[in-house]
Nucleic acid binder design. Structure first.
Lengths: 215, 215
DNA sequence: TCTTTTTTAGCACAGATGTTTCATGATGCC
DNA sequence: GGCATCATGAAACATCTGTGCTAAAAAAGA
């Protein structure tokens, strides 16, 4: 019998090499040869686990997308377990903590966000990625929607908020913040991203005489 | 003397071909040959006006960025000429009209936004575009900042708003909305983008018993 | 040790890309 | 008309890409 290698492990190892190349040099440099080099494998080895380049890219995209959303979902379920804090600060902190998993606040999340952006944009013109992109949209919408529903259950929440509209606004803000923090880290630092997110969530609650994140 | 062709016109014509290719097939397909084909020129002709591919790409990027910001600046200067409306609806409409120039609300702005996104993301790993990207950031910041200052001069504006923080939030929202409207037009329609923008601006004003864009 | 199957490595091909070089065409002034 | 000068076109080169095919290497059972 031959040498047994866990094929799934190998596929994830190759996917990691894809992230590395994309994060450092962009999607255009994610050729099979460059990926193989980054993974420390031969071109033939990579092709042994993925028939096409298209298959490799879709796989890497899905692993990336799932990793991001799983991180957020774990945090989200912790939030949904215990009752929501009644005070303003605790409530904001709980909700922000979940959504922060979607922002590039450290090196790990930053690499994830970069790769995610490149894939999403590529999916616009790459038919092999449209399906994965759709799934990604649904996953993001589910996470943000659930956080928002939690927040709006609080007596502190403003009335007359339309969940779908606010989800659209919040997702837009998260995407835009991610983009800016990824592309212009000098102007959009992690601390600023966290503060911006909290300020936005705060604006969904009833007005407060002493704003939390003012001057 | 030879045939005289306005070199600048020709360069803009080639840049237009770049947009066309990028908008339809993505930045990866914007090769010199594809661009030449889209422009109806021979490869040699394109290279006659641009020494490098890098030069062509930076030129196309700058023209695209300037076009977007010029559109917004024209609208902005019209806003700054006359005194601001005192009523809530008029004020919001004036400010939103300027910022809408940055959103992909019609086919022209949509193509501009797509090309803009692709260039910005590429600039992250393409040294030849970083300078142009920096200029683009400054231009966007200037437009959004001036609109925000106008809005905050109104007696309707909430107090204790920190201009820089709100600019960051607004730019993030605009970028995110653009991204979503470009990538998922089915979920993020122009009307929804316009409404989301207005709802955000409305939230910067003092609370209103009868919200403009409610249910 | 031999066998069998997986894994790895390598070569070769066709296509695309940026770039260089050179030849041809077109044009308007002398 | 001739001709200098720009515009255009085409061919060739080196490089990189994905992919197909083949052979070596490796490992675990017989």
């Amino acid at each position: 019998m031959p040498k047994i290698v866990d094929a799934d492990d190998r596929r994830e190892l190759v996917a990691d090499a894809v992230y590395q190349v994309i994060a450092e040099h962009g999607l255009t440099q994610a050729s099979l040869r460059n990926v193989a080099k980054a993974a420390g494998l031969a071109l033939g080895s990579v092709r042994h686990y993925f028939d096409n380049q298209a298959e490799l890219m879709e796989f890497a995209f899905r692993v990336n997308s799932e990793r991001i959303h799983l991180r957020a979902l774990e945090s989200l379920e912790a939030l949904e377990q215990e009752p929501l804090p009644l005070e303003r600060g605790g409530l904001l902190e709980k909700c922000a903590a979940v959504l922060e998993e979607l922002l590039p606040l450290d090196e790990i999340r930053r690499a994830d966000a970069v790769v995610h952006m490149e894939f999403m944009l590529d999916a616009r013109t790459n038919a092999g990625l449209t399906e994965a992109a759709q799934d990604d949209y649904r996953a993001t919408g589910a996470v943000v929607g659930r956080v928002l529903l939690q927040l709006m259950e609080s007596p502190l929440a403003q009335e007359a908020l339309v969940p779908i509209d606010e989800a659209e606004r919040l997702i837009g803000l998260l995407d835009g913040l991610s983009l800016r923090m990824v592309l212009q880290p000098a102007w959009a630092a992690p601390e600023q991203g966290r503060a911006t997110l909290r300020r936005h969530l705060d604006s969904l609650l009833i007005p407060n005489a002493a704003p939390l994140y003012g001057v």
